[in-house]
Design a protein around this nucleic acid. Structure first.
Lengths: 219, 219, 219, 219
DNA sequence: AATGAATGAGCGTTCATTCAT
DNA sequence: TATGAATGAACGCTCATTCAT
């Protein structure tokens, strides 16, 4: 499995020396914090520069435009999620059911963190207005579905590839939807564990019922 | 079932004559269009005024601040969803299974419209940074869950109230999550019908398995 | 002594009926309050209308422009001072010294009121940028000096008319200067009585020394 | 005697290089000119920027708010008066009477300049609505009274400290009051020299009569 | 690699003013 | 007389961006 490839958008010729690379990282971390705390509508170059402890002039040296910064930022954050997801996948070694359960378990715990609760809605809204962000988001979810598709096939070999993809998408939808209701400080946050159990049991049943007559009609 | 109550935030003393009320409506429609097309980060008073065909001065006459306009706008759009949802509920007359199916059917069709696809992600992002919007959104979903909870109880009387609430929330989460993946012009839009069928079958199964031993443990 | 003539600037054709005259008076009172509390830089038609309990539209019916309102307002307030001053003058009947003393006494008490402390500095500043206000202010002080000039002549007949005018102006200057330092809530307000005594004694001495060699040279 | 301390309110991090300091000075000069010519009610950031020959953006770079600019401006102008006043005090070397006379002479000449005639009434009006300006003005006059108090004591040692303070305040009041009547282009401007002589003689007499029975009663 | 200085467009908002009713 | 509705200019201020150093 390949390490996620980052597509950097910073100004060519910058971030060449080590100091520059460190600075770049601090800018992206600052940008992430600002985006999460303020939301994209109040996401400004000044705030990012301030939080990174540099001047706006210097920020402009690395990112010639706000758009470039945003894209790099989205790419950066998405990749950090992918890295973790890939690690999760590698650290398997158990039955496919257990592996799936552990992925879902991690996912639902993560969706309860402030980072994920705040970041993803911004991402979804952004994707609706920025094609580049949309394609990054698509790429993220495609990668996230990969282990789901794989494990679904292992759990129930009767599942066709198309069914497995749809199942993976369905699980994704439920999990992302739960972010809105059971994310950090959300009304259903106290019931997160029960929702987790319901999701896992439901998904297992769903995978099990795959290949049935009902699911094959009219497709 | 009560008609949704709108809490208007426009400047007191305005929208008193018919002309003003008409204008107010046109402002809210314009605001909705701008919010959907441009996203909240590019949602400006001038754009709303332009689209409503009035001057900024006149927009300010009705809404003293952007915040007021946004709140009224969110309230207005949310209420228009509630109105439809309440109609859906009233137009029942069939078996609870069919009623649930028709709600889900409507829901998934609606989530494929540009309006819903564009509006809701903005709402989720906004709710993370504006308490007032957050409470309006909470209210919306509470109302949306009502018929779900009711029908779940009719379909499977073995379901406890707590279970029914959780089930309703779970269904909500899945549907809203599908907006991101199968909304208007989204990658999975062509598979919307299959996803609909999967959702309905899955939810029926889920409701049916309610009250089982597996779901009752550790709660 | 003539009653002060008010030069009204309200729109011709308005304030014809009694209701209109009453309204006009309430507008002027409202304007006075706004000017004192907010200062001219924050003196707005809206605030005046609000305080008068009418709409801006109706305020515009009476005063076609802010400038007109301001002029009428200044005229109105100035006249109210003149009315009191004239009463003071009429209610004399005592020795000229006592009369002068009673005028100065009233003056220094008045300068301690919030109205006078707040209104006059606005007037002085306004007069520097509005010729019309300047001439109204000049008229006010000319009238105020009249009894001073008269009494000075009665107290010390050796005073030439020119000297008497200069003396009256000098007294005016001191009193108005005291507004800045010993007006309402000003640092020297607690010492107002001592300052009053100092002023009265000093002016008496000054009037007494009029006609002396020292004051006549080089003029 | 300490050099007056300026408390600058410009945005931290600006005016660090020489160019910035020069710009700051030009802004303050521009601001002074605008305040004097237009009055505070028409004192706008744009006018100041225009007069300083810079963009509003750049003005905002130095002063984050109009309030900050105004405070710095008042502080700046007041300090320029204090600098001159302190020089006047230092350049003594003569009899206390002559020193006092030279201060009053300078004062009354200064009050005839357009700068002083226009600036101070704005200051008095401003002080009524802005606590910060009020305290700067209080500080100014406290410093201005210092040499007056000192010289009064030298001229008439019978004067108690309290009497000397009151005398100094009284002289201040008269001089500031004269600004309104005999300032630049004011009706009494042609009689400024005679008023000066009257003031000086009067103050000398007043100082001389200090410590008398009349002045000591009831205090 | 980094900064302070500068720009100009655009923001939300307020304002005096006008007008139909 | 009085109001609600409407305008458009101007306000203070923020913003992304550029540039010289």
């Amino acid at each position: 499995m390949p390490t996620p490839n980052r597509q950097t958008s910073h100004r060519p010729g910058t971030a060449i020396k080590i100091k520059g690379q460190v600075r770049l990282a601090s800018i992206l971390e600052a940008g992430k914090a600002v985006l999460m705390q303020a939301g994209y509508s109040r996401f400004t170059m000044r705030k990012v520069a301030d939080r990174a402890g540099i001047s706006i002039g210097n920020l402009s040296y690395y990112y010639g435009s706000k758009e470039d910064l945003l894209r790099d930022l989205v790419d950066y954050v998405i990749n950090s999620y992918l890295v973790v997801f890939d690690q999760l996948r590698d650290a398997a070694g158990q039955s496919p059911e257990k592996q799936l359960e552990s992925i879902l378990d991690y996912w639902i715990e993560d969706l309860g963190t402030p980072e994920t609760t705040l970041f993803f809605p911004e991402l979804w809204a952004l994707a609706n207005h920025d094609r580049h962000v949309a394609s990054l988001v698509d790429g993220l979810y495609a990668r996230v579905r990969e282990p789901l598709i794989e494990l679904t096939g292992l759990i129930n070999p009767a599942c066709s590839p198309a069914e497995r993809q749809q199942l993976a998408l369905f699980m994704c939808a439920t999990m992302e939807g739960l972010t809105i209701f059971a994310g950090n400080e959300k009304p259903w946050a106290p019931r997160r564990q029960q929702l987790k159990r319901m999701a896992i049991e439901n998904f297992m049943q769903l995978i099990g019922s795959c290949g049935n007559v009902a699911m094959r009609t009219n497709r």
